[in-house]
Design a protein around this nucleic acid. Structure first.
Lengths: 237, 237
DNA sequence: CACATCATCGAACGGTGTTCTATCGTACTT
DNA sequence: AAGTACGATAGAACACCGTTCGATGATGTG
């Protein structure tokens, strides 16, 4: 069965004594250090100074471990969002919130992939969802429009995050090739393409070279929010 | 040692003869049948009637197998996009293309996760990217705006695709719980939340219940395209 | 002190991607 | 026609993964 909220932190001498908190904290630490592949039960056990099977007392399987770890960090993310000042423009507030989300994913790229998992099962995710949606209640929209608006914003965040979160291929991880050099090669390959066959790629290759992920995200977000503003204004007038 | 004479008379193990095409086709078939976890080298080898190690002659590792398989199906997807009639409104054309992409991901949910991997390495992905971007060349935008517009549209597709592509948890896969029942439970749980603490969730729970993924995607896409139209019009006038 | 329960752990199982080495079959050389 | 080089295949083994099982230390209760 699963561990309940009780926690005995009496320090054992030979045997390791864990707690839900420590398990999740170390799991997140592993994820932060080297992404999802780094989070293995064996690595986690070693880190906790205990045995592998012990972790299964706190967690049913790896899926649940990932869920709880995600919810754990979303908890603090939720605090950040709730601490936001807020303005008289709900769409501005939505923008600010989305930027906080994006920043969190930049700091923890592995978050992106697990961001939308089972909104129902993760309490903090749901509360974050509510927090975003609450802003749409201040807009003149139908219920369906509100639902779709929040979905769209989260979609933009996740869409950018997935792009951002994908780990560079072996070469870069091994340190043989620097990340900049890796991207530089791609740019170089693009430049050598047939300009007649790839007019667009040639048009934007300079933009791609040395582009800023945050800029890219902000632009995508602002397009969606501009559309939303239009939608809210249309019904209102 | 023994096989010298028996070569013809007694048919020993016939050696399998593969090809890049057959490897990729069977790999895609496995992915279609049960998603990424179903694509293992052993399952693929058995399907090809050969040994496990043989696959490594065609492919360096699983990552490359996934890349090539993805590029394989994107190839036919590209044909669909190129066969599109096209109109005098570039944004309409972008919308149509995005819908084709979305349909492809609905048909092959595993595609979503690998959709954006290494645009540079996958030739068909790059051509698809070019095809989308070409439409923005018909709009009055800066190079950077064009770059960001295409990124945004792809972001919306991927964002929806990730949401769509995540496999339901164990219960549903085991067939113990139907997918509708599973979603129904979530809806039920939402309805039982404190209305004061979760006003937005209560507002949209009816919309979520029995919602259509395609509707959700189309709404998100249209918000982005509305923003883009605004942006293009502003600079033009 | 006995006891039930919580919590921990080593060892093992089946599965995975990957590598090593040996081999077959064919096309070309001589 | 025999020999050879090489493209292509394959079995066995390795290291690692998530997961399970059974045993056992620790702890508070009667």
């Amino acid at each position: 069965m699963a561990a309940r909220l009780q926690n005995r932190s009496t320090p054992g001498r030979r045997r390791a004594s864990h707690s839900m908190e420590s398990v999740l904290t170390e799991a997140v630490a592993l994820l932060d250090e080297a992404g999802e592949p780094a989070l293995t039960f064996r690595a986690l056990a070693q880190r906790l100074g205990g045995g592998v099977a012990s972790i299964y007392w706190y967690v049913a399987n790896k899926d649940e471990l990932l869920d709880l770890a995600t919810d754990h960090v979303i908890g603090s993310l939720l605090s950040d969002v709730e601490a936001l000042p807020g303005s008289d423009d709900p769409i501005d507030d939505l923008r600010t919130m989305a930027l906080v989300l994006f920043d969190a994913i930049v700091a923890r790229p592995w978050l992106g992939a697990y961001f939308m998992r089972n909104t129902n099962a993760q309490s903090n995710s749901l509360r974050l969802y509510e927090r975003l949606g609450a802003q749409t209640l201040r807009l003149d929209l139908t219920a369906r429009q509100r639902f779709h608006a929040v979905s769209a914003i989260i979609g933009v965040v996740v869409g950018s995050a997935v792009d951002l979160g994908q780990e560079p291929p072996q070469e870069v991880l091994d340190g043989k090739v620097g990340r900049d050099e890796y991207l530089g090669r791609a740019v170089q390959a693009w430049r050598e393409l047939d300009p007649a066959g790839y007019p667009f790629v040639h048009e934007i290759v300079d933009e791609f070279d040395g582009h800023d992920d945050a800029d890219q995200f902000r632009s995508a977000l602002d397009l969606t929010l501009a559309g939303l503003r239009l939608q809210a204004g249309k019904a209102g007038a």
